[in-house]
Simulated scan of single mutants.
Amino acid sequence: MIETKRLKLRPFRAGDIAPYAAIRAKPEVVRFLPGGMALCATAREDAERIVPRFAALWEAGGYGPWAVEDRGSGTLLGHAGLRDLGRETEILYMLDSRAWGQGLATEAALAARDYGFGVLRLPGLVGYALPENAASCRVLAKIGMREEGRVHIFGLDALRFVLTPPAG
C-alpha cells in the first residue's frame, strides 16, 4: 500500500466490486476506454472480472493497478498503477468523474511512476491516451512523459507517451 497526500493506493479486494462497477457505469468515465460508452451496460460484469484480475496481478508479478481511495473518507475513486504489456510497462489510471479537476490522477500517476522506477527499477514506462482526451494527455505530460507519436493499440488510435528513469 502507498499513501500520498490525499490518496491511498492499495490492492483491490472483493468489496470493491460494487463501487468500482458504479464508477464504470458512468459514460463520462469510460468514454475514452476501449469499448467506450457501451461499457456502461456491462459495468457490473466487467467489475466482477477486473477486480480479481487486478488483485491477481500483484500476486503473480509484484505489481499491477491499485484501487485508489480518498485518504480522508475511504471512498473508492477508481484505479491507477502499472500494467505489464509484455515488452513494456504501462502507467494507467481511471478515476470517478467526482474526482476530476483536483489533480488526483496526476498524484496517483506520480506514485505509480515513482514505484515503477524506485521500487521495481523498470527501464521505462509508457502511457496511452486518445488525442481528444486532453486531460489524460496533460496528466502524462505532468509526470514527465513525452509524446512519441500515434499508435494503434487496444483497438484505438492513441497517442503514445514514454518515460525513462532519471539518470543517477
Rank of each mutant, 00 (worst) to 15 (best):
D96Y: 09
A112I: 01
D114V: 03
E90C: 07
D84I: 09
Y115K: 02
A111E: 06
Q102R: 15
L125C: 09
Y115F: 15
L125V: 08
L85A: 13
L104T: 06
D96R: 11
L120I: 08
P123V: 08
R87Y: 09
A108L: 07
P123G: 06
Y128Q: 11
E88T: 10
G103F: 04
L92V: 14
G124R: 14
A109P: 02
W100P: 02
L95W: 13
E90R: 00
L92E: 14
V119C: 14
L130K: 15
Y115V: 06
M94C: 13
V119A: 14
Y93F: 15
W100S: 08
G124T: 00
P123W: 07
A108P: 05
A108I: 04
S97Y: 07
R113D: 03
L95I: 15
G118Y: 09
L82R: 07
E107T: 00
R83S: 15
T89L: 10
E90A: 12
D96K: 09
L104Q: 03
D84A: 13
R87K: 10
G103E: 09
L95R: 05
Y93R: 14
A109Q: 01
S97M: 12
A112C: 12
D84T: 12
Y93H: 13
A108M: 01
V126S: 10
R113I: 05
L110T: 01
Y93W: 15
Y93N: 12
D84N: 15
G101M: 13
G116E: 09
T106N: 03
G81C: 06
L92F: 12
D96P: 07
E90T: 00
M94G: 11
F117M: 11
Y115S: 04
L95H: 14
A109C: 07
Q102W: 02
L110E: 00
G127Y: 02
